[in-house]
């Protein structure tokens, strides 16, 4: 339980989000362009952080599908800003030793000649520390 509370505390601190503001309208998930690819959707991040049910979020790949498009941030009628929880959960995993998802050595195999550098730096930022 203490561990669970710690994880919840850490996510709240990192994100600055107050999940209690959520009125569970689901608008964040309705507008999320990555919805179909996510196991847990933005409104579920909010609810599960509120209830301290953090492990399933950390064990799922949902946060890797987030595009950081801020649609859920701007369209939430209660200014909950769910993307900040998605980001905090992502960092909780990525910051652990050995948890980088993308390594520089993986990149050459994925390159194509039109790829902008912006894509690579953004992917490295999101998929590794």
């Amino acid at each position: 339980m203490a561990e669970r509370n710690n994880m919840k505390e850490q996510i709240l601190r990192t994100s600055g989000v107050n999940p209690l503001k959520c009125m569970r309208c689901g608008k964040c998930s309705a507008t999320c362009p990555a919805y179909d690819e996510m196991e847990y959707h933005p409104h579920q991040f909010v609810y599960m952080v509120e209830t301290g049910d953090i492990e399933p979020l950390l064990n799922s790949e949902s946060f890797y599908k987030c595009l950081t498009c801020f649609a859920c941030v701007d369209r939430c009628p209660r200014s909950v800003e769910p993307a900040k929880l998605v980001e905090a959960a992502r960092l909780m995993v990525i910051r652990e030793q050995g948890k980088n998802r993308l390594k520089p050595d993986d990149i050459p195999a994925q390159l194509d000649e039109d790829m902008p550098q912006q894509l690579l730096v953004s992917a490295l930022r999101k998929y590794s520390k």
Binding site: P33, A34, E37, Y64, K65, L67, T68, C69, A71, L102, Q110, L119, L120, S122, A123, K126, Y127
Partner: peptide, 14 residues
Amino acid sequence: ECCGGYVTLEDKNL
């Protein structure tokens, strides 16, 4: 609306 951003690197379908 978003184009798919950096997720294209690992999920072209998205």
